[in-house]
Design a protein around this nucleic acid. Structure first.
Lengths: 225, 225
DNA sequence: TAAGCTACTGAACATATTGTCTGAACCGAG
DNA sequence: CTCGGTTCAGACAATATGTTCAGTAGCTTA
């Protein structure tokens, strides 16, 4: 458990959870570090898609990446940390995709639906990766990560709407967010497990149909009494 | 991996997933078997509540239960199997609790809400146990178990309603079920993580508020056009 | 281009945990 | 009481993890 991490190695954010310093001007990481991390992330993601997260060992990862065991542990505390770092990566791509959708629709609800569509298409694009997470430890990790981000997003969105229209929500916004995001994630995992899944656009439509009345009610759109 | 399970031991349902034979009249299990299983389940559940599922080892369980290692493996393939068996146990209690609610309210929606309340109170009663599952492998296991049962329940319920009123649901009932149950589970886990959680009855009210409009829309209650 | 860091290597190590096996002791059902 | 199934104790190989170190390779900057 206790250990002397990075005795000689002074690479940036030794533990993936550490504050992100990649933005600091000029302080770009050593080329070797970038290479190593990239190789490890790619190896893990490939292996997850192939055999499922729980069956992948650290040894598998370093074999695939063709790196030394010590190197792995110089960068990541364990397999989970590597996965989370990989998810952060995916998330960047996701954020861009969402941004692309957002700039088209200006209204708040169009923005939200655009996000849903972007997310579903992102998931569809990485179908095998996500399927490799189903039912194992990775499912929890992925779900937690997504849930955290999405509920924050949703709650902020609801807050904006309530504020700008002066509604009185009969349900705590936090709970509404958990409800809606939980529902979405439920549909998402279900969708992933289907052998012949509905097309993403269709799912988006249906999710809209299911979500809208709930949100109207939860935000107090129709004033009580 | 491959092994000769239960070389001598012929105890009933050696692997928890095997068909349930406890109902067979007169074929009651050996007293020792019942005792052993009870001890193991109790030990695991205690330990999960204490330190969280992921930190519990098989060794911990057999120490706590004061049984031999070989005995453990004579009954359960691994820790996961033991947990699932424990969940089955809990579920029995849950089913009874639900039944008690059901016999009071006769309408379909009251029945559903009664189930929600029973479930939440059940979860509240085993708060520490469930909290010990948060974020780890057990969360996946528990969620899957609950999801499977609840979606089946919900879908059957929706089917009944649609059939008896002759509605035309614009959303596949399966998806509606996944949506609603996902939402419920989301709220449930959120509720479990709260330090000062809302009272169960309040959550039930709010869940009703959130769920009803969605279901109305999803089942096509107000005929289109 | 050379010097001085810093990261990677490769191999070994202690540790932890799992799942399996044995024969003998034990106990409960019939 | 007896027989057959269950439990015991302890040991075992197999697997995986996380750590350490001295030596080598490669980046960066002066």
């Amino acid at each position: 458990m206790s250990s002397v991490w990075f005795r000689t190695c002074r690479c940036g954010r030794p533990v993936p959870h550490a504050p992100d310093i990649t933005g600091v001007a000029g302080a770009r990481e050593d080329r070797r570090v970038r290479r190593t991390r990239r190789l490890l992330r790619e190896a893990l993601l490939e292996l997850v898609a192939e055999k499922g997260y729980d069956r992948v060992t650290v040894q598998d990862v370093i074999d695939r990446a063709d790196l030394s065991r010590a190197t792995f542990y110089a960068h990541f505390r364990d397999k989970d940390a590597l996965l989370v770092s990989g998810l952060d990566d995916l998330e960047e791509g996701l954020r861009d995709a969402m941004a692309a959708f957002v700039k088209e629709g200006q209204g708040a609800s169009e923005r939200a639906l655009g996000s849903v569509q972007a997310l579903l298409e992102h998931v569809a694009a990485h179908r095998w990766l996500y399927r490799g997470s189903v039912g194992g430890r990775a499912e929890t990790l992925v779900t937690r990560q997504l849930r955290r981000r999405l509920t924050a997003l949703a709650r902020r969105h609801y807050q904006e709407m309530v504020d700008s229209y002066g509604w009185t929500p009969p349900v705590p916004l936090e709970m509404t967010a958990e409800f809606v995001i939980g529902a979405f994630l439920g549909v998402m995992w279900w969708w992933l497990e289907q052998d012949e899944p509905l097309p993403a656009e269709r799912v988006v439509e249906l999710v809209e149909l299911l979500t809208t009345p709930t949100i109207d009610a939860a935000l107090g759109m129709h004033p009580p009494g």
